[in-house]
């Protein structure tokens, strides 16, 4: 009301239109800036109520750990199917069923979060572990980096898997123990990072369990290798 008494009268008609335009434009600008800010914030998932964002530790951990677990399931399945050693069949069956179940659990989270169940094709792995650029990890070739890697630590090559499939007896058991030990130790890095940095409680909980059980299994497999007169592969 008081504003109406101010110098409205001395504004001639033509410039009034332009003022309206200016005000309208300013309003649109303010709305756009607000909206854009809001959308950018959504993208960087600041809110706690929303599911973990596409670049979050939670999503990266679940997607990459699924890939890592599924290879352990493959290797354990080969050993379970082909070994003559009851002790090894038991640990292989244990690893196969536990990691398959955990992989499915993580797939369920990703579905509920509305995220892809597996890493984006061709995008590499473990970029989520370089949060803030201060953390380093070691890739499959023993190189330290903070970005994405093509092969996660501990992952076997296709040739190694084929080699495992072609063996029997003690040779099969030893190579299985070597590959699975390296696989477990490689996975520990990711699991430890997830246990510390994931935002969601149940993600940290599963990551902690993976750290505990894989550490125990790694110790057991180290002993089994020694018992068979063999050594672990270089990590």
């Amino acid at each position: 009301m008081t504003e109406e008494g101010l110098p409205e009268d001395d504004s001639p008609a033509p410039s009034r239109t332009s003022r309206i335009l200016v005000v309208l434009a300013a309003t649109v600008a303010v709305l756009l800036v607000g909206g854009a800010g809001g959308m950018l914030l959504t993208m960087s998932q600041v809110e706690n109520a929303s599911p973990p964002g596409p670049d979050s530790v939670d999503v990266g951990f679940a997607q990459d750990m699924r890939v890592h677990h599924l290879q352990a399931v493959t290797m354990a399945g080969i050993e379970r199917d082909r070994t003559d050693d009851g002790e090894l069949r038991a640990i292989a069956f244990d690893i196969e069923s536990t990691q398959l179940s955990q992989s499915s659990e993580m797939a369920g989270w990703l579905t509920v979060w509305g995220r892809p169940g597996l890493p984006d094709p061709g995008a590499g792995h473990m970029e989520w572990m370089s949060e803030g650029g201060t953390h380093e990890h070691t890739d499959g070739h023993g190189e330290t980096s903070t970005g994405a890697v093509q092969r996660m630590p501990g992952m076997a090559t296709a040739a190694e898997i084929d080699q495992l499939r072609g063996l029997t007896g003690r040779k099969l058991d030893v190579l299985f123990l070597q590959l699975m030990l390296r696989h477990h130790q490689g996975g520990l890095q990711m699991a430890k990072y997830g246990a510390e940095h994931a935002r969601t409680g149940y993600v940290r909980n599963l990551a902690r369990k993976i750290v505990q059980s894989q550490q125990a299994e790694a110790d057991a497999m180290t002993e089994m290798l020694a018992k068979r007169g063999a050594r672990p592969l270089p990590s």
Binding site: E3, L6, P7, E8, S11, S15, R16, R19, V22, V23
Partner: peptide
Amino acid sequence: PKSKGAVKGG
């Protein structure tokens, strides 16, 4: 809008 614009411009 008119009065408001006037204030700002003014």
